[in-house]
Design a protein around this nucleic acid. Structure first.
Length: 505
RNA sequence: GCGGCAGUAGUCUAGCCUGGUCUAGGACACCAGCCUGCCACGCUGGUGGCGCGGGUUCGAAUCCCGCCUGCCGCACCA
């Protein structure tokens, strides 16, 4: 294992970013708690996502239940694709879908039959392991969705949602009306999703309960364009094409978003648009474009609903390249299925052509927990013994520290006043007087506090304080009168320490 | 889920093989007091631990079993 990844997780655990869930009862794999700082950081990451997709893009945000009735997920295909009768080879331990083996080797269709019947059929028909020819064990049900029931008596079967998307699809009619028939129509949802992984590992990378931020962009299949495409047309995309993966090549094809569309490397302009937007979002979160690539999923890897999928991958030292977002071209799969199963009309009307169409969908779907890890890893810098979490100031859980230089002569009292004023001004600040001033700076650095305000004897004379910049340790002296405003501008990045005449300490 | 290794204060770790001398040692962190005019200063004091459960034994951090959790490989990851 590598040192950097360990340092990230150790720091995150020790300083209250993430904790193992249910720890005092021995814990549970695949679940994590966000501690006070982690919770704040996660919320700030979500706020940045929301700022892009809801504020700038104007997507409609909704919030739907995590408990989803059986019929909905039956229609979406999840029941059939997430519930499998599996069988394991007793010799090589390979796991296979029982239905597939029975079809291939015995020519019988056992779809929908019970586990017992399938086990019996495998024995009677002499179905063997396709890899090593070994004997197969008992068929067991593998359910990647958490099962539950609505109401007492288990009358109505339901599942915890494996994705938030279905809540959007089933609301399409109302959303389409709410959006007054305009296309493309973007709808987003941020919330928890659940997958009962067989054996989750890799900490927060594979969770059984996770937070996802998904957008479903509905569009006229004959017109897959985004009105704001020009804004991102020159953004460079690093693509790992399927053909290169198949050829065993790590070759990255770097093109602008406009060229990706022109050269037909991606299915349409909307897809390219959201890939470009993602580069910008990640950059804003502190993940440089050099650590981002888009991997085109090979046909066999795609979800049942997708005809083209790109994964946004971020490079990490601990886990290598990890998928942090998926971009699926779901076509009209979901709406069509829900039309069939519900009997409702979920079409859109295209005025120019006087034609009813089932909208197609491009789905950018982000794994917030994974992005959270990537942000931490890409932010943590080590300088000697010191750890500095160089979070972008606007996502830092604590925006400023307020310290009295020494704990006497009325400095703590004055510092407390300033803390109060900054809190009232809406800044997330922490007061600290314990230990030496250097220790307090170091403590603040480790949790990513971008600015520290120090109250010294001069403060008592002329009502000025110093602001110390985390990343450079430079300090500037500003009047308390302007402090909140200056801090706000430093945090949002419209003002730099240098422009204030920052001095090396 | 299978196989291998591991789990000691908040964090990292000594002790485990060869049971008692462990009332479990250390470092860092944390808290209190003193000190302190700017980058983890110093002094004094302090809080806090053997993953959980069972067994063997006069006696278990140490040996055995089960579970949980973590790491590595296989499988899975729609």
């Amino acid at each position: 294992m590598n040192q950097k990844g360990d340092e990230v997780l150790e720091t995150a655990l020790r300083r209250g970013f993430i904790w193992p869930s249910f720890e005092i009862y021995g814990g549970a794999a695949g679940f994590y708690d966000y501690g006070p700082l982690g919770s704040a950081l996660k919320n700030n990451i979500i706020a940045e996502w929301r700022r892009v997709f809801v504020v700038e893009e104007g997507c409609l945000e909704i919030d739907t239940p995590t408990v989803v009735p059986f019929e909905v997920l039956k229609a979406s295909g999840h029941v059939d694709h997430f519930l499998d009768a599996m069988v394991e080879c007793t010799r090589c331990k390979g796991a296979f879908k029982a239905v597939d083996l029975l079809k291939e080797q015995a020519g019988v269709d056992m779809e929908g039959k019970s586990v017992k019947e399938m086990s019996k059929a495998i024995r009677e028909r002499g179905v063997r392991c396709p890899d090593c020819g070994g004997e197969l064990g008992e068929v067991f049900e593998f359910n990647a969705m958490f099962k539950t029931a609505v109401g007492p008596g288990s009358k109505r079967q339901a599942f915890l949602r494996p994705e938030t998307a279905q809540g959007i699809f089933v609301d399409f009619r109302r959303l389409y009306r709410h959006g007054r028939g305009k296309l493309p129509l973007g709808v987003v949802q941020i919330g928890r999703g659940y997958r009962n992984e067989i054996s989750p590992r890799q900490g927060m990378i594979r969770l059984r309960e996770f937070t996802m931020a998904e957008a479903e962009v509905f569009f006229d299949p004959k017109n897959p364009v985004h009105p704001g495409f020009e804004r991102v047309a020159s953004e460079r995309l690093r693509l790992w094409l399927a053909k290169d993966q198949s050829a065993g090549s790590e070759q990255i094809t770097e093109v602008t978003a406009a060229d990706a569309v022109r050269q037909k490397l991606v299915c349409n302009q909307l897809m390219a648009y959201y890939l470009a937007l993602t580069v910008q979002l990640l950059r804003r979160l502190g993940i440089p474009e050099s650590a981002v690539r888009f991997r085109e999923q090979l046909p066999g890897q795609r979800a049942h609903y997708s005809v083209e999928t790109w994964d946004a991958e971020v490079h990490t030292q601990r886990y290598g390249w990890i998928e942090i977002a998926g971009f699926a071209y779901r076509t009209d799969y979901d709406l069509s299925r829900h039309m069939q199963h519900s009997g409702e009309d979920l079409t859109a009307f295209i005025e120019e052509r006087k034609e009813k169409v089932v909208c197609h969908v491009v789905e950018p779907s982000f794994g917030i927990d994974r992005i959270f890890y990537c942000v931490l890893e890409h932010s943590l810098a080590t300088e000697g013994k010191r750890k500095i979490l160089k979070l972008k100031p606007y996502i830092a859980p604590i925006q400023a520290g307020v310290f009295p230089l020494v704990t006497k002569d009325g400095l703590p009292e004055r510092a407390r006043q300033i803390e109060r004023e900054l809190r009232t001004a809406g800044l997330r600040v922490e007061y600290d007087e314990s230990g030496s001033i250097g220790r307090r700076y170091a403590r603040a650095d480790e949790v990513g506090v971008p600015f520290c305000v120090t109250v010294d004897h001069q403060t008592l004379e002329d009502n000025t304080v110093t602001i110390r910049d985390r990343d450079t340790a430079k300090q500037v002296r500003v009047s308390i009168e302007n402090l909140a405003e200056v801090l706000k501008r430093l945090i949002e990045g419209t003002l730099s320490i240098e422009s204030l005449g920052g001095q090396e300490s």
